[in-house]
Amino acid sequence: MTFDLETDTRLAYVLRLADDLLINSQRLAEFVTNAPELEEELAIANVSLDNLGVAHALYGYASELGGGEESADDLAFLRDEREFTNCLLVEQPHRDFADVMVRQLFFDAWHLVLWPELESSSDERIAAIAAKAAKEARYHFRHSSSWVIRLGDGTAESRRRAQRAVDGLWRFAGELLMSDRVDADAAAAGVGVVPERLADSWHREVRAILQEATLVVPVDPFVAAGGRQGRHTEHLGHLLAEMQYMQRAYPGMVW
């Protein structure tokens, strides 16, 4: 990648928004043909495509900010693991449906509180993308939260799996609410938001759902972070290998 993310924090900010969405979209796409019912498969594919659509708009803007040397596709399919700045949460694999829906709840709640703030970004492009994404996020949150409530407050088996998912993924959610210099610069310029400012809202939304689902909120304060700096868990490499395979094996291939 030829971008200088150290100096161009606006570009870095747009890229991390896009990376979160692309990686989450790819994770959800893995569930297609594996969902418990055809209807749920369609619902998950819908969310995945919504995420991909917003990611595409953001990568397009990032490409422009970077001088157009790298296209949106290049950014998605030709960057390496260390160049992706998505949060660790979205790259986490799932064992079962509960993992998918709890991961989705944490991620959707983040967008539920983030996009309305970005609608008033001083950057018109980001504001326009946020306005579209905010509507989608409200539905995504409704979908994942209603599932988490059903799983948590469902059978003994569904509850056990939902609690296992919450316990396993909780440590990765905190990274969404932590800021670094890119967030601070973007916020100072009126372009972005400092995540800590949204932490209370995020916790309110998520805890209300977990409470209704009769699930226990973990007390472990440990937060696994590093994704924003390109330091990922071992799972991202596998995901990229699958997602980027075509462009790596057949460079420039189109269909």
Binding site: E37, L38, E39, E40, L42, A43, N46, R142, H143, S146
Partner: peptide, 20 residues
């Protein structure tokens, strides 16, 4: 038609299947 465990998810599934 759609499959769903309850009315609320039936409406959500219908939304994703027939109004997208």
């Amino acid at each position: 038609s759609v499959h769903a465990a309850d009315a609320e998810t039936a409406i959500q599934n219908a939304r994703d299947t027939y109004t997208r």
